[in-house]
Amino acid sequence: MAPKLQISRLGKSFGELQALRDINLAIERGEFIAVVGPSGCGKTTFLRIVAGLEPASSGEVELDGRAVKRPGGDRGFVFQTDNLLPWRTVFANAIIGREVAGRVGPAERRRTLELLKLVGLEGFENYHPRQLSGGMRQRVNLARALAIDPQVLLMDEPFSSLDAQTREIMQTELMRIWEAGRKTVLFVTHQIDEAVFLADRVLVFARRPGRLRESVAIELARPRTLAIKRTAEFVRYVDHIWRLIEDDVRASVIEEKV
């Protein structure tokens, strides 16, 4: 079967700076892919190109065999910051993708309500974002992306602004939601344990220029619970990935100090 996402010889430059070089990748339907790497490795740029928010400088991204050039309803983007519209209710925020596509009928409303229930926001449909905690706002962010029923879910460090406990809860919640629909997911994070916990495969990026260093298959049984984070197998994966990026991370830390 043809892969869901095919990325070939993808490159991106910002002027002199080469952000991404020669990324080649095939992602199967229903795969959960995590992308990790030091800051400045181009992982977010990579995600934005797949989303169509950023043009590639060379190479291409194909979704179901069609080249991706611009944003579209076949991809749902979950942002690092929740980016909720403060004047809209939770429900009106969640359904905005449908509105943009110009189709808001009873079926869309019903589906959006179901999704809000799935992400644990039943009863909060008429609240405004300012009345919600950070974790709840990220749930709306997720529901908004799912509401357009995308082929691929693109997530850009969605839990990085949450406190450690809320983040762990959101990880298990995401697993539960993903098991319910088995969408193809590209999940960018700087947290190795988060990547190992969630993903079928972890793509480890290197920096200067940003490139794919290794693709690590995570063969941990599903469904996974938080307890898995304390198993020797889990720790081995985390160690392995950490060793892959350690030198790069040190280099980027020193650079940021200068």
């Binding site: 611009r70 944003p71 309803g73 991809r75 942002f79 980016n83 905005i96 943009v100 596509a101």
Partner: peptide, 11 residues
Amino acid sequence: RLIEMLRSFGA
């Protein structure tokens, strides 16, 4: 960021 959010849906 809000503009980009809407743009991601193809607005």
